[in-house]
Amino acid sequence: MKELLQVRGLTKTFRLSAKQQKLEKTREKVRTAVNDLSFTANEGEIFGLLGPNGAGKTTTLRMLATLIRPDSGDAVLDGASVVKEPEQVRGKIGFLTSELKLEEFFTPNYLFDFFSTLHGVPPQVRRQRREALFARFGIDRFAEVKVADLSTGMKQKVSLVVSIVHDPDIIIFDEPTNGLDVLTARVVTDFLQELRSQGKTIIVSTHIFSLVEKLCDRVGIIIDGRMVCCGTLEEIRRGGSLEDRFFDIYRETVGEAE
């Protein structure tokens, strides 16, 4: 099995503004969002980052997607370093998170073509891919409707499709089912499994245990910016339910810190 992704000692701190300090009722000036985080993911597997709110999941994925730079440490995706070769990394990954929005004025057709151009996808390939993906997600009927007029679920599907116009080998999804109804969530999880069967490597973050149990091959549990344990789903569960194991681990970790 090929290790397609290596994360080594990723660390990220944020300087908190006076406004943020007040808002979060804290005196600390610097927040360590991700603290010396390491893990690897293999080709053709779904890796889950599981953690409570504020654990640092989104921050980790944003570093992998080269939107923000780590303070220290590095991640190598299919041979490209996020620190040294961010532009190469961007060509290899598809990234989806709720903070990435589509311009509401445009139609799915336009956006698909626009992002294909930015990714350097040849027109011929683009057309085939668009037809296949739009049909797969039922976007074809809405292909000429402005994004502003689409339902939340349809918007999410368009965002998903647009994030993979270049057929990337590594797909990074932050909270893939957040805010979706069960039907749309199902479409998304089914698609992720389909991608895995095509040999894609997928990293998802979530705080939903059932999603991890259903989807993931390997899991990393992240609390307070640290990777507290990492392994196959079975290794982590040790025969019990993931939820029970998580609370044990959480108690151990937070208890240690106090």
């Binding site: 060509g91 589509l102 311009e103 992002f115 990714h119």
Partner: peptide
């Protein structure tokens, strides 16, 4: 406007310079 609406980040994760 693009910053406010979060659409610029969508462009920034593509390989475009």
């Amino acid at each position: 406007g693009e910053k406010e609406r979060g659409t610029i980040a969508t462009m920034l994760i593509t390989p475009i310079r």
